[in-house]
Design a protein around this nucleic acid. Structure first.
Lengths: 210, 210, 210, 210
DNA sequence: CATGAATGAGCATTCATTCAT
DNA sequence: TATGAATGAATGCTCATTCAT
């Protein structure tokens, strides 16, 4: 049930669609590496082109403005995380399912630490339109968790109102993301497994309190 | 027990310390307003000077680089939140104390929504040195919560290991901050009171699970 | 007695002369349309190619530089006006002949308003060499008028020195062209017929004053 | 009776009005020299700044876009010619007055050959708004001549309708300007005095024909 | 011959910072 | 101390031209 809504499309003067895909992928990978190092604002278009492996002129054959690069990067990251989240859906409504879903989610976050950090720090540099699209993608992720919780409620294992579900889902998602954007605070004190275990306990006990 | 560690000092060609204080306060207030609107990178030094109420020349009498302004702003915001957190300390170790501390903290966050958002989005633009200082301030905030939890453990009301305390304190702090940086996701669905109540339940039940 | 002097030749990698002629005609028509709208400098080679109906690569099979396009356009316009002027020659030397020649010339100008405006505004963008050629074409047009006047002098209907003839011929040509390049000043106040009539009176009475 | 209508104002970040006047004058003089050589499009802003005697940064303290420079140049040229035309007005309505006014006008054109050529070639590069303003200045010049002719009609020395006056005034103005923009065709054949004399005869005899 | 992707020199414009007054 | 004019390195973006397919 992945949302197929297309966000604002980035224009290209190149016609060959598959070439566009290839070049944009190069661009995105180069840009992610660069943005990690210096952030979006300090990265120049020339550096982005170089990191992507082509010239500044070629870069602009595939985008219209520098902001387009950021948008493509953010879009790509979200698509990547949504892709990984898709298999959460097939689970039943037991608490054990929830636990393994949480584990799965945290593992995914851990596999995309830099990407998620970029997303968190640079989204505000997008146009309002692009921001809205990125936020809609974030909503989808929260919605996945909400659906998991609803299933647990339906199965009678836990009891929560819709508001509580919405709030808890947001909390869990944020908690996961904090493993990325609070690296400096968390990674030195906790291993990923420890952290997952503790977060799972905190969350499961927490929602049982409702 | 507020930490008095001074961070990297910002140089000024002006000698009158009280004048420096006055001008920097003007600068910080103007800059916060500006950064809210356009972010640090898009705000120009001229605009900052204008927002502060003096000329670009005067601005540079009180700072050395544009980054200094951001540093002063971040420092000011942290000092402000630390000031408000100070009274948490005087509480005893009951769960009710903890609950009211949580409420107090969330109220504080709600009173500094824009400031905290700026902090979250712009910290990465600081020099490594200044970032380290700002992070140390963040650690202090977490430390306040850790101390609260420890007192609860000491009073026997709850039972947690040090690692769990560290992790839970971080979680709570992040959860509070998310009220600021996930405004778009949370404020339309929940009132502040609702949100505090749910977060409190989630957290208290959660840590009781340890 | 049309001058057959060839101007600087534009190189092409294509060998089929008739194909060259076809493609260049497409190019010239497209370019005229484009230059009307945005002028030579603001029109890109891509746009020229598109307006001509082929790709940028093909465009460059038939020219060497963007300036070549302008040259071909200017050359084409002059050839067109020279072609139309050719029949002036066959007239005798009466003032009535002169009058109808003037009318004919102004009608021709009116049929090439946009083209002449392009010529007037863009000639300076040509290389010195190409400019010289275009000027030589302009001289030919003036020469046509000079010959007309000379015949009137020979027939005894009017009396003018060579210098006066040269100057009057230039004046008439400019006056005609001004119907194109001062459109904004003249077309709202005068119909073409009115204008021709007044110009004819002014000119004929004028030269009779010599 | 110089028109004092202000055209679109060019913004400056500099506050000192008299300094603005000085720097813009430097800019205009440098730009005229440069535009003479290479035209507006081929002149870079850096070259303009250099020709004006200051840095690129300073240039942009006094204008907002490159087009502003062209506008300032055109405006300055028109103001200059209008200033010189002002004294035409004081004449009476004799044909001799007209003759000396014509002479005066042609002398003025001769003193502004390059400037007028720039005007003729670059006006089209201005924005529609700026173009409209420049055209209105041109209308004023024509209007001066119209007034001269009207006075001659009133004094009974010649007889012309309003339409004829409008058309003749335009013709005379164009004829004068052609001394500048057809330099290559006229200056080699005629001295200024010769040219003025012939043009005067042509024009006076011409309008007497109405 | 035709195509269109690739190239990079070149350009307008911005903005942090300095310094003479 | 305060001011604001001057500076020029840096940057996003364009576009004429080339060349492999």
């Amino acid at each position: 049930m992945v949302d197929k809504t297309k966000g604002p499309q980035v224009q290209s003067t190149v016609k060959d669609e598959s070439l566009i895909a290839v070049r944009r992928e190069q661009m995105i990978q180069g840009a992610i590496k660069l943005f990690k190092e210096k952030g979006f604002h300090r990265a120049t278009t020339r550096e982005i082109a170089k990191a992507a492996g082509f010239s500044i002129g070629t870069l602009y054959e595939y985008i219209r403005t520098k902001e387009d690069v950021l948008y493509l990067v953010c879009d790509s990251i979200y698509k990547q995380s949504m892709g990984r989240l898709a298999n959460f859906e097939i689970k039943e409504g037991t608490v054990d399912d929830l636990k393994s879903a949480i584990r799965e989610y945290f593992l995914q976050v851990d596999g995309m630490l830099d990407e998620l950090t970029i997303m968190y720090q640079e989204t505000k540099s997008l146009s309002k339109e692009a921001q809205a699209y990125v936020f809609s993608k974030e909503f989808e992720i929260v919605a996945v968790v909400e659906r998991l919780l609803k299933r647990c409620v339906q199965s009678g294992e836990i009891s929560m109102t819709d508001k509580q579900i919405h709030m808890a889902a947001n909390s869990l998602v944020v908690q996961g993301q904090s493993w990325a954007f609070r690296k400096w605070a968390l990674h030195r004190q906790h291993t990923l497994d420890e952290y997952i275990e503790m977060q799972t306990t905190l969350f499961i006990s927490g929602i049982k309190g409702f």
